[in-house]
Every structure is written in C-alpha cells, then in structure tokens.
Amino acid sequence: TEYKLVVVGAGGVGKSALTIQLIQNHFVDEYDPTIEDSYRKQVVIDGETCLLDILDTAGQEEYSAMRDQYMRTGEGFLCVFAINNTKSFEDIHQYREQIKRVKDSDDVPMVLVGNKCDLAARTVESRQAQDLARSYGIPYIETSAKTRQGVEDAFYTLVREIRQH
C-alpha cells in the first residue's frame, strides 16, 4: 500500500529536517529553504509493509500558489509548527483551512506536530497545542528532528489516521 503524505507549515519550522531524519536517519543542521522535494521510503507499520511517498513543501509565502496542487494529491498532512515560534503555531489554522477548502472536506487525515521540542526556549505550551488538536479532532505529537524523538511516531500516526479514514 502506498501513502501520499504531505508536510506543511511555516518556513523554518523543520519540515525538511523531520523528513530527512525519518528517511535518512540524520539531522540536517543548516537551513536551506525548500521549494519542493519528495522522498520515498518502505516501512512496516503495524505489520503492514507500506511505501511512504512524502512531499516536503515550501513554507515560504512566495510558493503558496503551489499549495493547491499538492493538497489535492496528498492523502494525509503533517501540519508542523516549531514550539519556539508562536507565529508558526498561529499559521497552522490557515494551512488547515486551505487543506479543507482544496479537499472540499472537513475530515482530512492530519496530525499536528510541534517540532524542536529539544529546545528550552518554548513559547507554545503543550497544552495550547493539545487544545488546538482536540478542537480539530486530530492527534498532537511533539518531535525533535535533532534527537529523533517522536519522528517515526508522527509519520506513522498519520498513516494510521489515513487507514482509519
């Protein structure tokens, strides 16, 4: 089974770092803004072998026109913010609204991801993020692309959301 996953969120929150940590098991430290990259990885989730087709997208506003296209083809979405960047957390709402509009559905598989949880300088409390996820009816997972904490959990949870859909 193949799953088309799309990673969305503001610029600099760590979308590529999360994806590369999942696929290649290493942490990319330097920031190089993405336009669009796709990665494929075969994994076993709950005993089922599946192929993850992951689209890593641009957070930069100037590429926002490309969003409709990949939102149409994606089956599930990782909505990523950084726990030390309140603005990126506030941006999640717009991504969710755009996904709902493009998919013409209120019920699209999504996982809210709070990345950079290895950093002490948190400005978005776990509780705020949990409340937001609960209001959307989606899971919330904290990750660190640096330490790998929660990385597999985030992507695998999204696959489970798609399966249950």
Rank of each mutant, 00 (worst) to 15 (best):
K116I: 15
N25L: 04
Q128F: 14
T34V: 00
I45R: 03
E61W: 13
R72I: 01
A65D: 03
V159N: 05
R40H: 03
Q164E: 13
A10M: 06
H26Q: 08
K100W: 00
C79H: 09
D153C: 00
G11D: 14
K103T: 06
G150D: 12
Y39H: 10
K116C: 15
S16L: 00
Q69I: 05
R40P: 01
E152N: 15
E90F: 01
R72N: 05
Q94H: 05
C117W: 09
E97P: 06
T147M: 09
Q128C: 05
D106I: 03
I138L: 12
N115C: 15
F155Q: 01
G114W: 06
S64L: 06
I92L: 07
R101T: 06
S144P: 07
R148S: 11
V124A: 13
S135Q: 08
A10R: 13
P109T: 02
G11M: 15
V44E: 05
T147V: 12
E161I: 07
Q164F: 12
K100C: 02
R40K: 04
Y3I: 10
A58W: 11
I20D: 02
R148D: 08
T1W: 06
E90L: 05
Q98N: 00
R163D: 09
I99G: 01
A58M: 14
R134S: 11
D68V: 00
D32N: 11
V7R: 02
D91F: 05
K15T: 03
L52T: 13
K103C: 10
M71V: 06
G59Y: 07
D46Y: 04
G12C: 15
L158K: 05
T49G: 05
Q42P: 08
G74D: 02
K100T: 04
I162P: 07
E48G: 10
E61P: 14
M66W: 10
D153A: 11
A129I: 11
R72Y: 06
V8P: 01
V43F: 01
Q42S: 08
D107K: 04
A65E: 03
R127N: 10
E62C: 06
D37Y: 02
I45F: 06
G11L: 15
L112E: 08
E75Q: 10
Y31G: 02
R72G: 06
Q69E: 02
D32W: 09
Y39E: 01
V111P: 08
T143V: 13
G137N: 06
L112N: 12
R160S: 12
F77G: 02
T19H: 04
I23Q: 12
A133P: 03
D46H: 08
V44A: 04
M110I: 04
T34E: 00
S38Q: 01
D53K: 02
I45K: 07
E61Q: 08
E2A: 03
E2L: 04
L18Q: 03
T1F: 05
Q98D: 02
Q69D: 07
E75H: 05
E30A: 08
C50F: 03
Y63R: 15
D29H: 06
A121L: 06
R163Y: 13
Y39K: 06
Y95M: 09
Y39A: 04
R163P: 11
I92T: 04
S64I: 02
P139S: 12
T86S: 07
V43H: 13
G114T: 09
N84Q: 00
A120N: 09
N85A: 04
K41P: 15
R40S: 02
V113K: 07
G59E: 03
I92N: 10
L18C: 06
D91M: 12
G76L: 12
A145F: 07
T157E: 13
K146P: 15
E61M: 15
D118N: 14
V111R: 07
P109D: 03
G9T: 01
A17P: 00
P33H: 06
D153K: 10
A58H: 13
D106Q: 05
Q164S: 13
Y3N: 09
L78F: 03
E48R: 05
T123W: 12
H26E: 05
V13S: 12
G12P: 15
E152D: 09
V80H: 04
G47T: 06
D37P: 01
R122W: 09
T19V: 03
H93W: 07
R67Q: 13
K4S: 05
A82Q: 12
A129P: 08
G114A: 11
A10I: 06
T73S: 08
T86M: 13
L132S: 11
Y3S: 05
Q128D: 12
H26M: 07
I20H: 09
M71P: 11
C50D: 09
V111W: 12
R134C: 10
L22E: 15
G76P: 01
K41G: 11
V28T: 08
D104W: 03
L52M: 02
Y136V: 09
Q42H: 09
S105R: 04
A121W: 13
R160H: 12
T73L: 06
F81Y: 02
G59W: 13
Q60T: 15
E62M: 07
R67G: 14
R127P: 11
G11S: 15
E161A: 13
R163A: 11
Y39C: 05
Q21I: 13
Q164Y: 14
L52C: 05
I23K: 15
F27I: 04
S64R: 07
C117V: 09
D107V: 00
E152G: 12
N85F: 04
L5D: 07
D29W: 03
F89H: 02
D32V: 12
G76I: 13
I138M: 10
N85L: 02
T157K: 08
V7Y: 03
L112R: 02
E75V: 06
G150P: 14
S144M: 15
I138C: 04
T34L: 00
I83C: 11
A82K: 08
C50N: 02
R67W: 11
Y63F: 08
L78A: 05
R160P: 07
L119H: 14
K4N: 09
C79Q: 05
I35E: 06
R101G: 06
C50R: 02
T57F: 13
S64A: 01
E97H: 05
Q69P: 06
D91A: 08
N25M: 10
E61H: 11
E48A: 02
H165E: 13
G137L: 11
G9S: 01
Y70N: 09
D29T: 00
S144H: 15
V124W: 13
I54E: 01
S135W: 12
I99D: 00
Q164V: 04
Y39S: 00
D37H: 01
P139R: 12
D68K: 07
N85R: 03
D106W: 03
Q60D: 15
A133N: 11
V108H: 02
L132T: 12
V159C: 11
A65Q: 02
R122E: 11
E97V: 04
Y70V: 12
P109C: 05
N85P: 02
E30P: 09
K146E: 15
E75W: 08
V151G: 15
V151T: 14
V8S: 01
V43G: 06
L55Y: 04
A82V: 12
D106N: 12
A82L: 02
Q164K: 06
E2T: 03
G74V: 10
D68W: 02
S126K: 07
V44N: 04
R67H: 10
P33N: 02
L132A: 12
S126C: 10
I45P: 09
R96C: 09
V113D: 01
D37R: 02
S105K: 00
L119E: 15
K87I: 03
I45Y: 10
H26I: 04
D131W: 06
A133L: 09
Q130H: 03
A10N: 10
E97K: 11
Q130E: 09
D104F: 03
Q149A: 06
V6H: 11
G9W: 00
G9M: 07
T157Q: 14
V113Q: 05
L52I: 11
S144Y: 14
T19P: 06
E30R: 07
Y140Q: 07
L112H: 04
K4V: 07
I20N: 01
Q21G: 13
